[in-house]
Design a protein around this nucleic acid. Sequence first.
DNA 1: AGGCGGTTTCGATGGCGGTCGTACTATGAC
DNA 2: GTCATAGTACGACCGCCATCGAAACCGCCT
Lengths: 118, 118
Amino acid sequence: MARPRTTARTVEHPELSEVPLQQVLEALVDPVRRLVVSQLAGAAEDLSCGTFVAPVSLSTLTHHFNVLREAGVIRQYYVGTAKMNTLRTEEMELRFPGLLSAVLAAAAAEAEPSRPAR
Amino acid sequence: MARPRTTARTVEHPELSEVPLQQVLEALVDPVRRLVVSQLAGAAEDLSCGTFVAPVSLSTLTHHFNVLREAGVIRQYYVGTAKMNTLRTEEMELRFPGLLSAVLAAAAAEAEPSRPAR
DNA sequence: AGGCGGTTTCGATGGCGGTCGTACTATGAC
DNA sequence: GTCATAGTACGACCGCCATCGAAACCGCCT
């Protein structure tokens, strides 16, 4: 009956202009976090925390989401009990042009050893 | 006299196609190493190890040079007692397009808060 | 030859970050 | 209400890496 209205829980996000390069790089240097970011980039729509596949425990995954959010890489919001995630692609592009896209491209290229395109 | 021991000491460099993204990111995530890379990018010609300014000891600096070289970011060669350094810019561009340049641009932009030129 | 300046190696140290399990909270379904 | 589901907070552990000083090294110059 009652719809999953936008919930009360809110999440703090940094202003991207406040985030130093160091923090972004530290966020992207961890393989698990890069895995998360790649999955987000490849997804059609936002993903909830639970839908990610990573070789770590749930609590560790939560930690990684926090790091990514505090670095301004992702944006999070609650929908019911689910916490959704989305990349802050455009904002990052303004802050550090080409950085996130280059990392994503490199990660994608490495993931596919020898598959041209389709 | 003796043979072409022009520069007897040689240095091992990885093939860039062999270097994983992880290693490059790990190399670039350290602030001191990014400082080194920035100075190298801003220099007209190759620099010897001793000409770099960094808030660390010489032995630590040597360590950073090793990390950068093993990650394929820089190329090193001896000239007399001096060890020269140069960025492997083009090769890196082929391996991970846009990555190194984006990091360099971001670092440069952050270094100059709001100074067009002077 | 002998010294020197530049660079490296070695071993030790300290701190930080990724990892986990468990206990906990919050929301929605029944 | 109770239960189930989704995610979080906390504390502990552990390994790795940046750092250092001191000593060795290697060419070059006088």
